[in-house]
Amino acid sequence: MTRVLVADDSETILLLMRTRLELAGYEVDTAADGQEVTERWDEGRPGELPDLLLLDAMMPRKSGLDALRELRAAGVDTPALIVSAHQDATDADAPRDLEISGYLTKPIDFDRLLDSIAELTGS
């Protein structure tokens, strides 16, 4: 089953994401900030690593972008979608070297999100 790791500092949003994604047939893992995201790799259990990252751009402790930067530096090439609260976040604003697969704005358009996930994970 395709595993998606969702990171957001709001528990409500995590619950919403988990519910919608599980309804669509994905296995969902959640993280409260970027630190928890990078720790998944530190713990080093390859079988449990996600197939896709869904990261909030702004989180306390470590942002989604910072976490992604560390992962990319460590050679992790898992596709990543960034959720931003800025209405006009576009590819132009983003660091090119992070290989970000797409941007979503809040409130989340779930039809678009599910399309993107299906496309990126080939499911």
């Binding site: 409500t12 949003i13 702004m58 209405q87 409130p107 989340i108």
Partner: peptide
């Protein structure tokens, strides 16, 4: 506007 978006996302979602 930034801070209002998270709760709004939940309500709408």
């Amino acid at each position: 506007s930034h801070e209002l978006r998270s709760p709004l996302t939940s309500v709408q979602g």
